[in-house]
Nucleic acid binder design. Sequence first.
DNA 1: TTGTAAGCGTTATCAC
DNA 2: GTGATAACGCTTACAA
Lengths: 325, 325
Amino acid sequence: MTTMREVAVAAGVSQKTVSRVYNRDPHVLAPTRERVLRAMSDLKYTPNALATTFRAGRAPVIGVAVPDIVDPFFGAIVRAVDQEAARHNMSVLVTSIGEDPEREAEIVNSLLTRSPSGLILASVRQEQTYLKIWLDKLPIVFVDRAPTGVQADSFTDDDLGGAHMATTDLVRHGHRRIGFVGDRLSLPTTSLRLAGYRRALEEAGAGFDQHLVALGVQDHDTALAALLRLRGLDDPPSAVFSSNGRVTMLLVPALKKVPVAISSFGDLPLAASLTPPLTVVDQDPASVGSLAARRVLDRLAHPYRRYRRRTVLQVRLIERESCRS
Amino acid sequence: MTTMREVAVAAGVSQKTVSRVYNRDPHVLAPTRERVLRAMSDLKYTPNALATTFRAGRAPVIGVAVPDIVDPFFGAIVRAVDQEAARHNMSVLVTSIGEDPEREAEIVNSLLTRSPSGLILASVRQEQTYLKIWLDKLPIVFVDRAPTGVQADSFTDDDLGGAHMATTDLVRHGHRRIGFVGDRLSLPTTSLRLAGYRRALEEAGAGFDQHLVALGVQDHDTALAALLRLRGLDDPPSAVFSSNGRVTMLLVPALKKVPVAISSFGDLPLAASLTPPLTVVDQDPASVGSLAARRVLDRLAHPYRRYRRRTVLQVRLIERESCRS
DNA sequence: TTGTAAGCGTTATCAC
DNA sequence: GTGATAACGCTTACAA
């Protein structure tokens, strides 16, 4: 790798002049610039990005931490961030947190150690106070789940509204007993969706029944168990509302054994091709990722500008047939 | 952030001694080490990773470039790399290449500019000679698709064998006219799978018919068009073999309009829950990612050791009902 | 307009 | 065993 110093020698100028030319500083005479440019191309000069980064004190990189990059929802967020970042000559440092809240701080801190210029996070924790020491060092933007215990930007979906919409839709299709199947109430998405579900039921005069709430779904076994428990109730539900796409993915195979109408918060890749086609609340993760990335970039470009902290994106119901049954 | 210099002053030693203590150099007297360690914890010393990286000349990072991170196949590779990397205090720089071969070099070169310690690549190009200048600078490992025009490690699946297996299975279910639906023959995966398909047909005495090969599938429209063209043949196929998971994802919705038996190279998230359940060749992308990451790490740890260049992983057929028709 | 010198925080060299 | 000094490649401050 050839360095600025070498280019400087070749062009018969100082290192600083090469730096100026490279960085398009106008204070260089045209002929000088020509000489330097020639030397640069002759020697195939490429700047050492590591040195620039070191100098700058931060890497031209956006860190992204999500529960699971294989989940198409989070995958879409990461891809959108990547595209937005690429436009600004930035790269994306990703990591999958997993579902264990205990490990998050360690994983994210290790990501932050790499001095990214910004962080985009879908936290699996109930509070994120461990991030406090970082808040004044780089822009941190929460996606999908708003922060608790720290002040930071967030782009989330209208969890309450979406759940309300989906539940109301089930009621409209004649369901009175509707189960809620989810993972952990410690996640704001889940608790908000439960709230939306509950409100819809109450508004419909169908009443809220704690027994219809089945939490703790983590894998195929717990998903099946949840459905079996609901079916075993004295007054079993005729439909269930699944609180997120991951849970729905686990629930779908179990529906073969425990058929029941279903509506899902979160779209799935082949939702329309299932039998019956799945009714879902569509979330547009690409927009979330894109907005989050742009916010990071905006904050870097305009450190003192003020922004709206919390942005809630609208969701829409895609009615298909699984809500009937 | 406190620096080594500050720790050195606090402990009354030289900067180099702090460095030695931090790096567990045994050539430090116990009492000296104690003093330094105390100073480090008093001042909450954390090394500046950017400086270390600059010094080292490469970042503790593995670059990963895949066509599309949202594709669960590639997502699983990325996640596996991430897990393996994390164990070695490395991070992962990802990027989605897209499907345009023209853009790959630019995208991957920009990733390489960040000086990752290694690169894992699922190329969308027919040849990768643009990587030649990098080969002696960092370990490059190809996944899913073996390299052409450059010598590098690769972890791929048994494309020919898997396609042969799936096609033979279709024949066993009574199909004689079997279509091949794919994307681009310039991808080694596609051409190898076509070869396996062809060999299976010839071995079965069913003969190979060029008209049964439908390429160019890129989206829902082209997928449907491919099926329609095949159905319109004088002697239409009773089954199709889909050359990869992405194509299958596009084909599945079209099957509603053009029903035909199908078998897919590449598993899908809800393959077993479709109607009919999809017969697939299962690929285990997590192993591919994990092996690739370990190879990168091994090469970094043992620069002069020799390794097998090409590793082909076995695949297995998961028989479900879509192959019947 | 151009150049000199210093410095970012770490590690390597080589004395002592 | 420990430390002074230089070096990595770039940018900033300041001079000329």
